[in-house]
Design a binder for these strands. Sequence first.
DNA 1: TTAATTAGTGTTATAATAACACTAACTATA
DNA 2: TATAGTTAGTGTTATTATAACACTAATTAA
Lengths: 229, 229
Amino acid sequence: MDELQDYPRPSVTIDCVVFGYDGIALSLLLINRKEAPFINMWTLPGGFLFLEETPEESARRILKSKTGLNNLYLEQLYTFGDVKRDPRGRVLSVAYYALVDPRRLELLAGIAANDVKWFESSKLPKTAFDHKEIIKVAYNRLKAKVTYQPIGFELLDKKFTLTELQFLYECILQRPIDKRNFRKRILESKVIKSTGEKRSGQKNRAPELFEFDELQYKNLVKEGFQFKI
Amino acid sequence: MDELQDYPRPSVTIDCVVFGYDGIALSLLLINRKEAPFINMWTLPGGFLFLEETPEESARRILKSKTGLNNLYLEQLYTFGDVKRDPRGRVLSVAYYALVDPRRLELLAGIAANDVKWFESSKLPKTAFDHKEIIKVAYNRLKAKVTYQPIGFELLDKKFTLTELQFLYECILQRPIDKRNFRKRILESKVIKSTGEKRSGQKNRAPELFEFDELQYKNLVKEGFQFKI
DNA sequence: TTAATTAGTGTTATAATAACACTAACTATA
DNA sequence: TATAGTTAGTGTTATTATAACACTAATTAA
């Protein structure tokens, strides 16, 4: 019989690509590394997988400890396994990506402000390990996914205007979207509903506030509905 | 500094979902397990990851040893990491899926015929570990992928007729496709080209033989072309 | 009250998709 | 050698989805 101990085991880490959106630009959360190797370089939030947790649980634990947030949208991205991706030895990384509204996020008090930082996705610093590659894969996945699954809402406040939602999509997809067509489609899809409220206090017409209709979305999915932007 | 040996390491295996198509049905290659646990049950071809190989290299090595084939279409599927997915201990599985024309495949002489077997995907036996779940994820991925990437060709002979290609798509997607629309679209896409030959010796009109135009496909992709069925 | 600013709204041309039925070529056999 | 049986191959049209486009409405500040 094969015994587990007959085979050498790699180390396994979890790395998270955390996307945030502050209303202006898509950003990524990076951590300044305080240890060798790659001391003082920027890295994805990550850590070693514990034996008593699943990779997803591990990702949530790590995100909680680095950002203080739980319950965020999280999805497995890919497992990176180049033999020399970590100079310390053989380390597999199961990568996840997460979506966060950074305005809802309080970076943990215990962590020095300089250690954890948001970077605009177009202005990333040099990163350690193969994290540049992981980020690239994550961004491509986000871009593809956002057009056929209503995950963009995770990056916004609970209540948002259609203009805000459109700006977010333009920001992720890096292309302009026609306002009238966008509104028509998103409203026809029935995945968002009006709250009846308006956002006032601006120097212009008060826009209507909408929210994601999760219940309705689940029903639509059951009927075979496919979200599409 | 973090040292790798400070952290417990899980075992890591590679499991492969091998899809085959014999002209009639989509099939899966399973292996009859000769060891505990799950002795005598059917499993996905798999094995432990070696420290000196990447997960993909490992998958190719495993497939080569179980099927004798190399150079097959292979793609990482997902990493399965339930804490109790293997009764022997903590084992992560990095799963891959592969596409094979089973008529090109000679099962290795060294392996008893009963040990390795094709099963129609609609008539699978009970499988060990969480392999049922892995298979389900793989089939969903294949179904989605086949509509926007020309990977179906991997399951056919180098030269094939349009009718064969259409049957394959109907088989994977589990729905009828209009013959004229299918031909129009696949030919307009330019990813296949006529060989000029015909397949004769049947009791009916000799169909034209086509082949996948890989060079042309790569060019089209560079120009931003998206395959679509 | 007026200017500035962003929100909100429909129509039409164009392109993509889906539905549909016959003729052509080859083989077997009467 | 004519005919029946079988699968290959071919275009057109209606329907639906997409893309392009410009003005009016509401609010605030000056």
